[in-house]
């Protein structure tokens, strides 16, 4: 009975688990990939995962504040992408490379 209702009845927990899976995917991307642009994309993935849980909480709790927070997060994420990509372009001009393996100037 419980197993069947998990698949047919969508609750808050379904959205939270989906959000957790997407956040972990983004974290795996940041840890495992070496391309600067793909790293930024993985950060966007993590921000989106958090947005899903905000909106899910807002819907199931009946409060709108979560959606306002998602609005702010989206603005900050767009700004962060702009600054991050500007930095990526200037890094590419300097090193001729976007693979973080070659950025060794900060190594001790």
């Amino acid at each position: 009975m419980l197993e069947t209702s998990i698949f047919t009845e969508i609750t808050l927990n379904h959205y939270l688990v989906l959000s957790a899976i997407m956040f972990s995917l983004g974290m795996a991307g940041v840890l495992l990939r070496r391309n600067l642009i793909v790293l930024l994309m993985s950060i966007e993935l993590m921000l989106n995962a958090v947005n899903i849980s905000f909106v899910a909480f807002s819907h199931y709790m009946g409060k709108i504040d979560g959606q306002v927070m998602v609005f702010f997060v989206m603005t900050i994420a767009a700004a962060e992408a702009a600054v991050g990509l500007a930095l990526a372009v200037s890094i590419f001009k300097r090193f001729k490379e976007v693979n973080i393996r070659f950025f060794e100037h900060l190594k001790g």
Binding site: L18, I21, M22, G29, L32, M41, S42
Partner: peptide
């Protein structure tokens, strides 16, 4: 769809 495309991002 979301999880599969998220997986293919990385």
């Amino acid at each position: 769809v979301t999880v599969v495309s998220g997986l293919s991002v990385i």
